[in-house]
Computed example of a mutant assay.
Amino acid sequence: MTLVETPSGPDVAALRRPARVRLAWLLAVTAALVVVMLASVAFGSRVVGWDDIVAALGGADTTLDQAAVVKRLPRTVLAVLVGAALGLSGVVMQGVTRNPLADPGILGINMGAMLAVALALVTVGLSTATEYIWVAIAGAAVAAVFVYAVGSLGRGGATPLKIALAGAATSAALASLVTAVVLPRGDITDNFRSWQVGGVGGAGWDSIAQIAPFLGAGLVICLLCARPLNSLALGDELAAGLGERVALARGVAALGAVVLCGAATAVAGPIAFVGLIVAHTCRLLIGLDHRWLLPFSGLVGATLLTAADVLGRVVNRPDEIEAGIITALVGAPFFISIVRRQKVREL
């Protein structure tokens, strides 16, 4: 049986946080999300004042500033939804694999979704957002199964280091395949490259309506897996001894994470490191109980991606830097620090 390492120092305090402290953090993150959402509709190529924001939220669009707010609203909502989906899927993937390095981008799941979309564009020609989502989810699922299978080969089974290495190798291989598939097709290269970077700049209410049912389904599945994930954290043998059907619990939780990741990638492109940053931040703040961790990770993920989108618009005004680039710049050193500190041990 694989045992969870006994934490020390600040980690113990995090595990023993009382409910009132967790609730306080929950309220603080909710307030931060509201602030960054307001910043998202206020900042861009034009800075919009409070009066115009209030008027635009009430339905007015008679001035340029009010029209700018109306245009930014779907972008803000999409950033919240995609960020929540990626944050939640990162926590679930780490719980399923017991791997502190698990993240949709690091494990190649985003890249699997991208390759599936690229192949479908070239071979059959996708025409609707729903088709993009189904294809992306299928590609994400295939990549997830492949990485876990490769990481399980050899002695010791699916160790965190082997899964991380398998994910990195798979991501590199799939990225090369994506380039090989798309490059000869000049008619789709420009649009695909803008999507490939990862961002929410092309948001619209129609794309949000298309993605919402998939995100809702993935959210429900993941939240229902909170108790099984707590059992899995004790080790497979102990979880089975407590009456948990380990394989079923792991498969259902992974399905929810793949649906969230695939749908988010279909509409916003492959945005990496959000799940990794969110998962470790949330555990530090509120502990390891997935009943708290899952909803909290959704809020933190939404806040992180929305803030990254706002930052990308502010630092390069009047142009912008896609949110996927911002999260990569923040997430890469975060990833290195986790590897150095935790030495790739299991959760």
Rank of each mutant, 00 (worst) to 15 (best):
residue 299 L to W: 09
residue 309 D to S: 06
residue 276 L to M: 12
residue 324 G to A: 08
residue 290 H to V: 01
residue 328 A to M: 11
residue 318 P to T: 08
residue 298 G to H: 09
residue 281 T to K: 04
residue 301 G to E: 02
residue 316 N to H: 09
residue 267 V to K: 03
residue 308 A to H: 00
residue 289 D to A: 09
residue 279 A to H: 10
residue 271 I to R: 02
residue 317 R to S: 15
residue 329 L to R: 00
residue 288 L to R: 14
residue 331 G to P: 12
residue 269 G to P: 04
residue 325 I to K: 02
residue 272 A to I: 05
residue 296 F to E: 09
residue 277 I to F: 14
residue 302 A to V: 10
residue 293 L to W: 11
residue 316 N to R: 11
residue 293 L to T: 11
residue 294 L to H: 09
residue 295 P to L: 12
residue 289 D to P: 05
residue 282 C to T: 15
residue 297 S to T: 06
residue 319 D to L: 15
residue 321 I to E: 00
residue 308 A to E: 00
residue 266 A to E: 08
residue 266 A to L: 06
residue 314 V to N: 08
residue 327 T to K: 04
residue 277 I to D: 04
residue 309 D to W: 09
residue 320 E to P: 11
residue 271 I to V: 07
residue 319 D to A: 15
residue 279 A to K: 11
residue 324 G to L: 05
residue 289 D to S: 05
residue 268 A to W: 10
residue 298 G to E: 13
residue 272 A to C: 09
residue 302 A to W: 04
residue 319 D to C: 03
residue 283 R to I: 07
residue 297 S to K: 03
residue 326 I to A: 01
residue 296 F to W: 02
residue 298 G to A: 13
residue 313 R to A: 03
residue 284 L to A: 15
residue 281 T to Y: 02
residue 318 P to E: 03
residue 284 L to F: 08
residue 320 E to V: 06
residue 273 F to H: 04
residue 327 T to I: 10
residue 305 L to W: 00
residue 267 V to Y: 05
residue 280 H to N: 12
residue 289 D to I: 07
residue 321 I to Q: 00
residue 292 W to G: 07
residue 296 F to T: 07
residue 279 A to F: 14
residue 291 R to T: 13
residue 285 L to M: 15
residue 308 A to M: 02
residue 278 V to M: 10
residue 286 I to P: 14
residue 330 V to S: 02
residue 293 L to K: 09
residue 307 A to Q: 05
residue 306 T to E: 05
residue 326 I to K: 00
residue 310 V to G: 03
residue 311 L to Y: 00
residue 282 C to Q: 06
residue 299 L to S: 12
residue 309 D to H: 08
residue 294 L to E: 10
residue 279 A to D: 13
residue 307 A to N: 06
residue 303 T to N: 02
residue 319 D to M: 12
residue 301 G to M: 04
residue 306 T to K: 01
residue 283 R to G: 13
residue 294 L to Q: 08
residue 266 A to M: 07
residue 323 A to H: 12
residue 282 C to H: 01
residue 305 L to R: 10
residue 324 G to K: 13
residue 331 G to W: 01
residue 328 A to D: 02
residue 329 L to N: 00
residue 321 I to K: 01
residue 313 R to Q: 04
residue 322 E to A: 15
residue 267 V to P: 05
residue 281 T to L: 14
residue 325 I to E: 01
residue 303 T to K: 02
residue 296 F to V: 07
residue 311 L to M: 13
residue 329 L to Y: 00
residue 304 L to I: 11
residue 275 G to R: 11
residue 289 D to V: 11
residue 295 P to W: 14
residue 310 V to C: 02
residue 295 P to T: 10
residue 273 F to Y: 13
residue 331 G to E: 07
